[in-house]
């Protein structure tokens, strides 16, 4: 009876070990986890308060300029410098900005909010061991558990001592249970899950293309204001100084391009990476992928040990 229990326990541990080792392949972790690591690295420059604040300041500048652009149209038409039809024909880019600005502002604001509110979550995920190592956290303990369990089964078949091997199996089980706590996975993994959930609406090809269009709208409008509209306003007797926000936007625009351009690139280049990470099992479950197999292996080992007579001699005299 006790031998059957020990054999059952070792077989269970063997199955758990093989399952643990095979899990990364089943979940395509070897290909997906490094992509997640790339995404974490790429977003690092933007997941900082100073950077988000800088983007928000730029959005405020553009908001003020868009408001002035609306006023400028009204003024120029009222002054008779241009008819409404002429204005709209000549400065369609500015019209697009003033018409779309509320949408652009809300959408870009949403992106910045998502990045801002996830800074803590990002930091927690970034503090995890490197993503490319994730699969090996399953493979290595899985192989060790399977190997020790197999050796126990072999010993049972050969009738040789195996008590130490059962203790080793129990130790591996305890290590698996302890690993998530050691790596603070219980706190960090749910934060990763929150970040994934929060980023999901913004890390899509459609959303990235929206942002690209916003950039074109902004660039086109800024250029028309700077090159066409304000000079026309001055030619009609106006003073460009009446619209300081437009001038400020134009002065700042090259800097804005230099900051937004790489951020859009980061979003664009990481859509696929994000989707790979999103296809992994939920981050919140990751600690339990260690705890549960660990409990099974440890419990099976302890059960087998209870069915195994302790050594009769102090110097290693195991029973089978």
């Amino acid at each position: 009876m006790s031998a059957r229990v020990r054999r059952w326990a070792a077989t269970s541990a063997l199955v758990v070990g093989i399952g643990l080792a095979a899990a990364p392949a089943a979940f395509q972790m070897f290909s997906r986890a490094p992509l997640g690591g790339t995404m974490i690295d790429d977003f690092r420059p933007y997941m900082r308060t100073a950077k988000i604040d800088s983007f928000r300041a730029h959005m405020d500048e553009i908001d003020a300029a868009a408001t002035e652009a609306t006023d400028l149209r009204t003024t120029m038409i009222a002054d008779g410098a241009l008819t409404a039809e002429d204005y709209d024909a000549k400065y369609g880019g500015v019209n697009t900005l003033t018409a779309d600005w509320a949408t652009i502002d809300a959408d870009m604001g949403d992106l910045l909010d998502r990045m801002d509110t996830n800074m803590g979550n990002y930091a927690a995920v970034a503090a995890l061991p490197p993503f490319p190592m994730f699969p090996w956290f399953f493979v290595l303990p899985g192989v060790m558990v399977a190997a020790v369990a197999a050796s126990v089964l072999w010993s049972l078949r050969q009738g040789t001592p195996h008590r130490r091997r059962l203790w080793a199996l129990a130790a591996l089980g305890v290590a698996l249970i302890a690993a998530p706590a050691v790596f603070q996975m219980f706190t960090r993994a749910p934060k990763g899950a929150d970040m994934i959930d929060s980023f999901r609406p913004m890390m899509t090809r459609e959303r990235v293309q929206d942002v690209q269009r916003y950039f074109i709208t902004l660039g086109g409008a800024e250029g028309q204001l700077r090159v066409g509209l304000l000079p026309a306003y001055e030619a009609a007797g106006g003073d460009a100084a009446d619209y300081p926000a437009i001038a400020a936007w134009s002065a700042e625009w090259p800097t804005i391009v230099g900051e937004f351009n790489p951020m859009i690139a980061t979003m664009s280049d990481n859509v696929d990476n994000f989707q790979a990470v999103d296809a992994l099992p939920p981050f919140g479950l990751f600690p339990w992928f260690f705890v549960l197999p660990g409990a099974l292996v440890g419990g099976a080992a302890m059960l087998a040990l209870r069915q195994t007579d302790p050594p009769t001699q102090p110097n290693e005299k195991e029973t089978s």
Partner: peptide, 8 residues
């Protein structure tokens, strides 16, 4: 391909 003007 890739970057801020991906698809242009």
């Amino acid at each position: 391909v890739g970057g801020s003007f991906d698809g242009f």
